[in-house]
C-alpha cells in the first residue's frame, strides 16, 4: 500500500523542504510570540487608546483567513514599495496572524494574576517594569503554556499555506512528488507523518517545560 522506496528516494528533497518548513515556522514564531506578548501586555495593562489599537489589530487578523493575509502581504506590500520574497512574506503574514492569537492568550494570562499580588508588589516598592518582569509574566506564561503550545502546533501546520506563494516547504515539494508518482496514499501518508513527527516534538518539549515550571 505504502511505497517506502518512493519516500526514501524523495529524502534529499524532503529534507531541504523540511528545512524551509522549520525556517518559516521559527521566523513566524519569533514575530508572533514577541509581538503577541507585547500586545497582550498592552491590552491588559496599557493605556486605553493602545489597548483599543490592539483590539482592532486582533479583530483584523483573527477575523480574516490566513490564506488571504498571506496573499495580501505578498501582493500588496510591493505596491507600497516594500518588495518581500515569498519566504519573508509568508513568515511575516503567519507571524502577524499568530500575534493576534498570542496577544489574547497572554492577555488572559495577565488578567489571571490576582490583584492582591499586584498590591503587594506596589507596597514592596516594585517599579511597573519590575512588576511585569518578575511577577506578572512568569505566572502568566506558566498559566498559558498549554494554550501557547496549541498556537505553536497550529503555526507549524499553517506554514503549509506558504506553498501558495511559492515557498518550497514540505507540502509544496510533496505535491511535486505526487505529480510525478500519482501515488496519493504514499505521498499523503508521508506528509501526515512528517507533520505528526514535528508536532509531537513540540508537544513533548512543552510537556517538559510544564513540568519544569510547576510550583515546587
Amino acid at each position: 500500500m505504502i511505497n517506502f522506496s518512493l519516500i526514501i528516494s524523495f529524502m534529499p528533497v524532503l529534507l531541504l523542504a523540511l528545512g524551509q518548513t522549520l525556517a518559516v515556522t521559527a521566523c513566524s514564531l519569533v514575530v508572533g510570540f514577541s509581538l503577541g506578548t507585547l500586545f497582550g501586555l498592552v491590552q491588559a495593562r496599557g493605556p486605553r487608546s493602545l489597548a483599543f489599537a490592539v483590539n482592532v489589530y486582533a479583530t483584523l487578523f483573527r477575523g480574516t483567513p490566513m490564506l488571504v493575509q498571506i496573499a495580501f502581504i505578498f501582493f500588496f506590500l510591493p505596491t507600497l514599495g516594500i518588495a518581500l520574497s515569498s519566504f519573508s512574506a509568508a513568515a511575516l503574514a503567519i507571524g502577524l496572524n499568530s500575534a493576534a492569537y498570542v496577544s489574547q492568550i497572554v492577555r488572559s494570562g495577565v488578567n489571571g494574576v490576582s490583584q492582591e499580588e499586584l498590591d503587594a508588589a506596589q507596597v514592596l516598592g516594585f517599579s511597573s517594569l519590575q512588576t511585569a518582569l518578575f511577577l506578572v509574566l512568569p505566572q502568566a506564561l506558566r498559566n498559558v503554556l498549554p494554550s501557547l503550545t496549541n498556537e505553536c502546533i497550529t503555526l507549524l501546520k499553517d506554514s503549509s499555506l506558504a506553498s501558495t506563494i511559492g515557498v518550497h516547504e514540505v507540502y509544496k515539494e510533496s505535491r511535486g512528488l505526487l505529480n510525478q508518482s500519482y501515488d496519493v496514499v504514499t505521498v499523503f501518508f508521508m506528509i501526515a507523518a512528517v507533520y505528526l513527527l514535528l508536532t509531537s516534538i513540540i508537544a513533548g518539549l512543552s510537556h517538559f517545560l510544564e513540568k519544569k515550571l510547576r510550583y515546587q
Binding site: 496573499a71 505578498f74 509544496k172
Partner: peptide
C-alpha cells in the same frame, strides 16, 4: 517564482 495558479494574474498586475 512558483505560486498558486489563482495568484498568477494578480501577481502580474501588482508587478510581483
Amino acid at each position: 517564482r512558483d505560486m498558486a495558479f489563482d495568484n498568477l494574474l494578480f501577481a502580474a498586475s501588482s508587478g510581483q
